[in-house]
């Protein structure tokens, strides 16, 4: 199986201290991969470096064997919900339309077919009826769905999502997981920064355990072990195995 993303010898540093240290990572094509690790482990930094938003101090990232710039249109991005000002004067559908700005090219405005696409994506995440609602009047879960819809209209082959399940209600979580599975069945590759260790095995195929260094990565059944988790979280973790 070809790799969707290949990271080699990646080191990222803000000022002096490294945030990511010598990361090697292969993300196989067509999998759902969780990125887990404690706060400050560099999860968001890794996503942003793959997206070329952060310049690494050393190492490189290849997507389908190419640089990010040349395959950018095949990569969808769901940033953390808290990264924008939700009081911005715009509506849900307008935010979703932004996912098409890259494809539209300069000066051209989104037209009727783009609006139809955006509306369909909002329908896919179950909030089509909120399309014209001002974004500050959406709940946290609905805002997260808007971000997901914006990534869906990108019609990408790889999706990078930063904590899409952070602080959302149970219904939204189910909707998002369903969409992730749909994406996988369409052959897409999805990398998700995730914080809930309990759900890693039920939601994801692969996992990356990260704490500045790569602790382990691979199929969940092989690498998501108590020993590697202890290494990742420094022994301060208790895993409650499901009794079922």
């Amino acid at each position: 199986m070809a790799n969707a993303i290949e990271v080699r010898d990646l080191t990222v540093a803000y000022r002096e201290s490294p945030v990511l240290w010598d990361i090697d990572l292969d993300v196989p094509s067509g999998v759902l991969m969780a990125v887990v690790g404690p706060n400050g482990a560099g999860k968001t930094t890794l996503i942003k470096t793959i997206l070329s938003l952060i310049k690494p101090a050393a190492g490189q990232v290849r997507i389908f064997g190419q640089s990010y710039r040349s395959v950018a249109s095949s990569v969808g991005y769901v940033p953390q919900r808290g990264s924008v000002d939700w009081d911005f004067p715009t509506s849900a559908i307008d935010v979703v339309l932004m996912g098409l700005y890259g494809r539209l090219g300069w000066v051209r405005r989104p037209g009727r077919s783009e609006r139809a696409e955006a509306l369909a994506a909002l329908g896919q995440v179950g909030i089509a009826e909120l399309a014209h609602r001002q974004i500050s009047q959406l709940s946290g879960g609905q805002q997260q769905r808007v971000f997901l819809a914006r990534a869906l209209v990108q019609d990408a082959r790889i999706y990078l999502m930063d904590e899409p399940l952070q602080g959302v209600d149970a219904t939204t979580e189910r909707t998002i997981i369903d969409i992730l599975r749909t994406l996988r069945s369409l052959g897409k590759t999805v990398v998700v920064v995730h914080h809930d260790l309990q759900t890693v095995s039920s939601y994801f195929d692969e996992v990356l355990l990260l704490n500045v260094r790569r602790i382990a990565s691979g199929p969940v059944s092989e690498v998501f072990t108590e020993a590697s988790l202890r290494l990742t979280y420094g022994g301060r973790v208790a895993i409650i195995r499901d009794a079922t």
Binding site: L51, L53, R69, V84, F88, V95, M98
Partner: peptide
Amino acid sequence: FDPEFANSLVL
């Protein structure tokens, strides 16, 4: 609204 997302679109 979202400069980082714009950046990810290589604008």
